[in-house]
Amino acid sequence: MPAADLLSSQGLRLDGRRPNELRRIRCKLGVFTQPDGSAYLEQGNTKVLAAVYGPHQASKSKMSTEAVVVNCQYSMATFSTGERKNRPRGDRKSQEMSMHLRQALTAAIKTEMYPRSQIDIYIEVLQADGGTYCASVNAASLALIDSGIPLRAYVTACSASLGRQSATHEPLVDVSHIEEAADGVCLTVASLPSTGSIALLEMSNRLHMDHFNIVLTRAMQGCRDIEVILDGAVRQHLAEGWTKQDVITI
């Protein structure tokens, strides 16, 4: 059910955005020296780091002769949320996130290129303000590009919700923490926008079937918009000369 108070009478959202407006995305590739690929991404107040190690030889138990093994770990710093988190990783929520990240990213990686190998993708959330999954996928996508691992296409993720303004329903793109907490519907989509395929789709809360399509369309549009931003960042990074040691100020 759409929560009634997500949209003001002027049609603006709780943080002053328009329904189809993304939060500001700032990102940087190649921020670290140790990993093979790394990226930092800010989506509004959500700040995420991603690092990629590999491809390297997989451990015997995990090894596959068909495709590369993608290993993801999602971790939230103890100070990233309003309430202090006791376990930064390994809890149920983080493990679920790790699994969903792996599923979305495996869809983008050309896994058949590296049999008997493994790619490690580590995500660290420094500050969480809703949409951590989306930010993580986008950051991981950039880190994979930075590491030079062949991808089918950009993989981006975006969430969408549904607000109500008088009698009309309006889908809201890129859900922030206050909107997540307001008990509205939240649809998360990870997709490969240039091929139009959906890698992962997750929805919490109830939503009438009539509204599903407009929410999904809005989320997919968000994915396409994010792809344009990420592509710009990659091009700028390459234009600056990728061998240069980049300095980051978070």
Partner: peptide, 22 residues
């Protein structure tokens, strides 16, 4: 980091540490 009560990011050469206080 706005979610922490106090925070700092330091880079000594390439070594980077983020500290957050709750």
């Amino acid at each position: 980091i706005k979610t922490a009560d106090a925070s700092a990011v330091v880079k000594c050469g390439n070594t980077t540490v983020v500290c957050g206080i709750k």
